[in-house]
C-alpha cells in the first residue's frame, strides 16, 4: 500500500549489513552504549557551551584581570580631581570623558570593577561555604538539625534582600569586609537550600549506603561521598549567584550604603553620581558608561552562568 516500500534486489553484502544492524541494535538496547552508526553526536550538541559562552568568559577574564591589577595598569589616577575640565565628553585622552569633578570616567569605571567583583566573589564563596556546610549537614542528619537550619533559611529569606542588607550596614561600619559579609549572608539561604536538596538526593543513593555498610563514619561519608556530588550543582550556579551579588553591591552603592570613602570606587556610586538630572541631560556619559560596563558584566555572568547550569543540567533557582 505504501509508495516507498518497493521491493528491490540487493546483493549479499547489503543483506549482511542489515543483519549486522539488527544485532547491533539489540546490543545497543541492552548495553545503552554509544550507537556506532547512529546519530551519536546529539549528546555533544546539547553539551556544547557555544560561542556566546566563550565571549562572556573572555569579558569576565578581562574584567577580573583589570580588577586585580588596576593600580599597576596605565590608567589615569581615578581619584584625581580636575584631571581635565569637568563633564568633558569622551575624547582620545579620556575615553569615557570626565565627571562633574573632572575625574577620568574610564579609569574610575575600570577601578570600579575591583569592589564589585571582590564583593561579588567573596559573597558567593561565603554563601557556598556557610550555606553549603549548613545545607549538607541538614540534609544528611535530618531531624532537629534539619528543622532548625531550614527555619533559619526561611527566616533569612523572609527579609527582602536589600532590606536585610540595610539593617546590617546601618548598624556597622561600612568597610569592604562588612559589605562583603552582608551580601554573603544574603547568599547563605539560597545556596544552602540547594545544597540541602542535592544532599537529600545523594544521601539516598547506593554508594552512600554502601559506604555506611562498610563502616565509614559520618564525617568521611560527608567529605568523601556527598561533598563532591553536592559541589557540582553549587559550583554550576556560582556565576549566577555572583551576578546577583554584584547587582546587590551596586544597589547598596547606589544608595550610598556600600563601602565608604572616596577611594572606594564602585559602579553603583558612579552611576548615582551621574544620575542627577543636570548631569544626565548634559553629560550623559558620566552615568551611561558605568551603566554599560556593569550591564555587560552582569549579562556575561548571567549568560555564562546559565550555560554552565544547562551544561551540568542543574535546575534553575528562584533567588
Amino acid at each position: 500500500m505504501s509508495g516507498d516500500g518497493r521491493p528491490s534486489r540487493k546483493g549479499r553484502a547489503s543483506r549482511q549489513r542489515l543483519l549486522r544492524r539488527f544485532r547491533v541494535f539489540r546490543l545497543v538496547r541492552s548495553s545503552k552504549g554509544p550507537e556506532p552508526d547512529g546519530p551519536g553526536e546529539n549528546e555533544a550538541v546539547r553539551r556544547r557551551l557555544g560561542v556566546g559562552f566563550w565571549l562572556a568568559v573572555v569579558w569576565l577574564v578581562v574584567m577580573a584581570f583589570i580588577a586585580l591589577f588596576a593600580p599597576m595598569l596605565p590608567f589615569a589616577d581615578p581619584t584625581k580631581v580636575g584631571y581635565s575640565g569637568p563633564r568633558e565628553p569622551p575624547s582620545a585622552g579620556a575615553w569615557f570623558g570626565t565627571d562633574a569633578l573632572g575625574r577620568d570616567v574610564f579609569s574610575r569605571t575600570m577601578h570600579g570593577a575591583r569592589i564589585s567583583l571582590a564583593v561579588g566573589g567573596f559573597a558567593i564563596v561565603f554563601g557556598m561555604v556557610v550555606g553549603g556546610a549548613l545545607g549538607i549537614l541538614a540534609g544528611y542528619f535530618r531531624g532537629r538539625l534539619d528543622q532548625a537550619v531550614g527555619f533559619t533559611f526561611f527566616v533569612l529569606l523572609s527579609f527582602p534582600a536589600l532590606v536585610l542588607a540595610i539593617l546590617i550596614t546601618a548598624t556597622l561600619e561600612r568597610s569592604l569586609l562588612v559589605v562583603s559579609l552582608t551580601i554573603g549572608i544574603l547568599a547563605v539561604a539560597p545556596v544552602g537550600l540547594l545544597a540541602r536538596a542535592s544532599t537529600l538526593v545523594y544521601a539516598e543513593r547506593e554508594f552512600v549506603a554502601a559506604a555506611r555498610v562498610l563502616g565509614a563514619r559520618n564525617g568521611r561519608i560527608i567529605v568523601r561521598e556527598l561533598l563532591p556530588n553536592v559541589v557540582i550543582p553549587m559550583g554550576a550556579l556560582t556565576l549566577l549567584g555572583m551576578a546577583v551579588a554584584v547587582v546587590a553591591e551596586g544597589s547598596l552603592a547606589f544608595l550610598g550604603l556600600s563601602v565608604a570613602g572616596d577611594e572606594a570606587i564602585s559602579w553603583g556610586k558612579m552611576i548615582v553620581d551621574g544620575a542627577g538630572l543636570r548631569d544626565l541631560q548634559n553629560a550623559t556619559h558620566v552615568a551611561m558608561f558605568p551603566v554599560a560596563v556593569m550591564f555587560v558584566t552582569v549579562l556575561a555572568l548571567n549568560f555564562a552562568g546559565d550555560r554552565i547550569r544547562q551544561y551540568f543540567d542543574v535546575k534553575e533557582l528562584a533567588f
Partner: peptide, 18 residues
Amino acid sequence: SFGLLSIPNFALGVVLLY
C-alpha cells in the same frame, strides 16, 4: 528577557529616566 534580567534596577531606572 535575558537582557532585562541582567540590567540592575538602578541602571534601568537611570536609562529610562534619560
